[in-house]
Computed example of a mutant assay.
Amino acid sequence: MTIIDTTPAPRARGLHRTLWVLQVLLAAFFIVASAGPKLFGEAYAVQTFEDMGAAPWFRYFIGLVELAGGIGLLVPRLAGAAAAGLALLMVGAAVTQAVILHGGALVLTPVVLFVLFVVLAWGRRDSFTRLLKR
């Protein structure tokens, strides 16, 4: 009987750990600093959505999507899908910031987050494909 060694190579372990650190940091950011103000009605978040001309329910919806995405980043089975979903959300955020809010340099925040989420989605693509197979 042959025993197969399934221990990841040191490079793969390093990448796995790096992705986890990035996931935890982004999850914390989205849960606390992004979703929280929208869901709890922080004045700046409310004003931003009013400036966009969006109804209050839309602020809550975006907050819930960000909360779900942040939690999803912490669940190994959902991490790839959560990162892909949050990347798409950042496309909308960048367009909104540039076109509707005329945010200038503020557009860079969702663009940088988009890149980080694409890196995470690519790095966790195995979880995404396993999820699709179910």
Rank of each mutant, 00 (worst) to 15 (best):
V21R: 04
A81W: 13
F58M: 13
V21L: 13
P76C: 03
A45E: 01
Q47E: 15
E50P: 12
V46H: 00
A82E: 04
R59Q: 03
A12D: 14
T48H: 06
L25T: 02
A12N: 09
Y60K: 13
G80W: 14
A82W: 04
G69H: 01
V46C: 00
I71R: 02
L22P: 04
A82S: 11
F61Y: 15
W20D: 14
L19V: 06
A27G: 00
A79R: 04
V32W: 13
H16D: 15
A82F: 05
A54E: 02
A83P: 01
Y44K: 10
G63H: 11
S34E: 03
D51H: 10
F40Q: 12
Q23H: 07
R13C: 04
I71F: 07
G70D: 05
I71E: 03
L39H: 01
F58L: 12
R17V: 10
F29S: 10
G63K: 10
F29R: 08
G63E: 10
L19G: 09
G70Y: 01
L74F: 06
F58G: 07
L78G: 07
A33H: 09
G41S: 05
D51I: 04
A54L: 03
H16E: 15
L25F: 02
A27L: 00
I71Y: 05
G36C: 08
L22Y: 01
V75Q: 04
T18G: 15
A55R: 15
A68W: 00
Q23V: 03
I71K: 03
V46P: 00
F49I: 11
L78T: 10
V46G: 00
A35H: 06
E42A: 13
P56I: 06
V46L: 02
V21C: 07
L78D: 12
D51A: 14
F40M: 14
A12Q: 12
L78S: 11
A28W: 01
A82R: 03
L78Y: 14
G69K: 00
L78K: 11
F40T: 15
L25Q: 01
L15W: 12
R17G: 12
A28V: 04
Q47W: 14
G41F: 04
A82Q: 04
Q23Y: 05
R77M: 10
G36F: 02
P37Q: 06
G72P: 15
G36R: 05
S34M: 04
Q47G: 14
W57L: 12
